[in-house]
Amino acid sequence: MSAKARARRTNFLLDVTLFVICILLLTPLILLIANGFKTPQEMLVWPPTLFPKDPTLENFHKVFTETPLLQWMLNSFLFALLSTVAIVATSALAGYIVGKFPFRAINIIFILFLATAIIPFEVYMIPLYFQVKALGLLNSVGGLLVGYLVMSFGIFLIRQNVIASIPDELLEAARIDGAGELWIFWYVVLPLLRGPLAALAVLAFFQAWTAFAWPIIVMTRKKSFTIEVGLANFQSAYTVDLSLLSAASAAVMVPSVLAFVLLRRNFVEGIAASGMKE
């Protein structure tokens, strides 16, 4: 066999292997969606069926009419949206400042930002909870937001991009033309940061959307649950109805997976940047 033919055969085998692995990785999610279409009776059949014999939309109907799932999704969406706005705004401005204004005071502030970046949220969330409580913000999106207003990694990401892609000469030229600092930030710097800011926005949104430990302590009333907390408590609040539970999980999962597939480039850019900081 010629070398070329052998290479082609190896490649074919590798493709097959990758396909099998990818399908295996996605199987739990596919099965979850399939379970959402099963009748409660079929869920109790042994051996379990992989795909519904008698698919029904009843579970989805029930989930949206009889449970506060929509309310929970709305809570999560609002929280994630506001958190994204806050993180993008603070990171853009602070990232630009620490990247381009190397005064000693600014450097000290940057070191403080960085030093706390590795401390997990779980470490300080209990004192933060009492701060939120003192403000009377428990069970409100505002209280939830307190934990997700800033992101050290976001500031770092923007700083790296500012240093790499915005030449000092450009800023100097604008200053000589008499432009004010805010004008420069708004009309010169921000447009050049569109890519990294989009990546950061996607990252921030997903971070808030999937938050769990913080919402579970701040949101204790059923109406104010986020979708993650709501789903997790679903299993104790409702009778054990696995098909209903699966339908609810699938209804939550599918939009976020679709959003990811559409925004994959931005997402990957953001995450990959986190690994490049050596």
Binding site: C22, P28, L29, L32, T210, L242
Partner: peptide, 30 residues
């Protein structure tokens, strides 16, 4: 490939855990 491998990472924790919970279920799981 890249998308499929990465999807489990972006699915939120609770729905993902629900999926596995059924798979591991002693009496009903596959």
């Amino acid at each position: 490939y890249e998308t499929a491998v990465f999807i489990p990472h972006v699915v939120s924790l609770v729905p993902a855990a629900m999926a596995w919970k059924w798979i591991f279920d002693a009496k009903l799981g596959p």
